[in-house]
């Protein structure tokens, strides 16, 4: 029961706009659940989504904290950034450049994490979905685009 399939419907997804294959005509046509799908493993999928938002919300929070922290220092304790640090520079300059570097580095961390961990997890889940399919289905076609997460 877990592997109810609807080959035609899923194949269409690769070539048509979402609205066309979501036409109400599709459900009600049978007793199949709405938008029957090759279901991903529930636990694995939930873990994937949790990990994805865990990482990206943490990084987002970090970026917000750093930027708005900087703004608040500018607004309330500007003198901190006016403090001289050797070489004729003020603290503000390394801090400003530091934020620019950190912003780039955070995107690097995300890409590194996603390439190393997320993509592999997606591949495992998608493979699991394919192996749950009935023989004779056009796996290559229905899974088009899946291999790259």
């Amino acid at each position: 029961m877990a592997t109810i399939t609807e080959t035609a419907g899923t194949t269409d997804m690769t070539m048509e706009a979402p609205q066309t294959h979501m036409a109400p005509a599709q459900h009600g046509a049978s007793h199949l659940p709405h938008r029957a799908h090759h279901h991903p493993d529930e636990a694995q999928f939930a873990a994937l989504v949790r990990a994805r938002w865990g990482v990206s919300l943490t990084l987002t929070a970090l970026m917000l904290l750093i930027y708005f922290g900087f703004i608040m220092v500018l607004a309330f304790r500007r003198d901190l950034l006016q403090a001289p640090v050797g070489g004729g520079m003020t603290l503000g300059i390394p801090v400003g450049f530091g934020i620019i570097v950190i912003a780039s580095a955070l995107t690097g961390i995300y890409v590194w994490w996603a390439n190393r961990s997320y993509d592999g997890a997606v591949r495992r889940i998608v493979t699991g979905m394919q192996s749950g399919m009935q023989p004779g289905e056009k796996a290559g076609q229905t899974m088009k685009g899946a291999h790259h997460g």
Partner: peptide
């Protein structure tokens, strides 16, 4: 969600 996170069916 399946399409969003797994890319299944993405254009």
């Amino acid at each position: 969600k399946i399409r969003n996170y797994l890319g299944v069916g993405a254009e």
